[in-house]
């Protein structure tokens, strides 16, 4: 699970061009879409949907489903685990 979270952070930094961030800068429970957290926006949310399919083979067909799953690194990892099992 921890390596999944590490991987996820790496992919997010890479795919969303968060060049000013390191893996260690993102807390597992930091709110991804809050300005006090990672500060992602609506286009990032769509890019996360692309990322889910590209790296984890998970298709998110409804962006609203993504909103709940993409709250934090923890919720994303849970979502991936659940979809894979």
């Amino acid at each position: 699970m921890d390596s999944l979270k590490e991987d996820l952070k790496k992919h997010i930094i890479e795919e969303l061009n968060l060049e000013d961030l390191q893996v260690s800068d993102i807390d597992d429970d930091a709110l991804l879409f809050s300005a006090d957290g990672v500060g992602l926006d609506s286009i990032d949310a769509l890019e996360l949907i692309v990322l889910m399919e590209k790296f984890y083979g998970i298709q998110v067909t409804n962006p609203d489903e993504g909103k709940e799953a993409f709250l934090t690194i923890n919720t994303m990892a849970d979502y991936i685990e659940k979809k894979k099992s």
Binding site: L16, N17, I43, L46, E47, V50, E53, K54
Partner: peptide, 11 residues
Amino acid sequence: DKGSPSPSLFV
């Protein structure tokens, strides 16, 4: 080539 249209590039 990369499987999926990228929304962050499209904008």
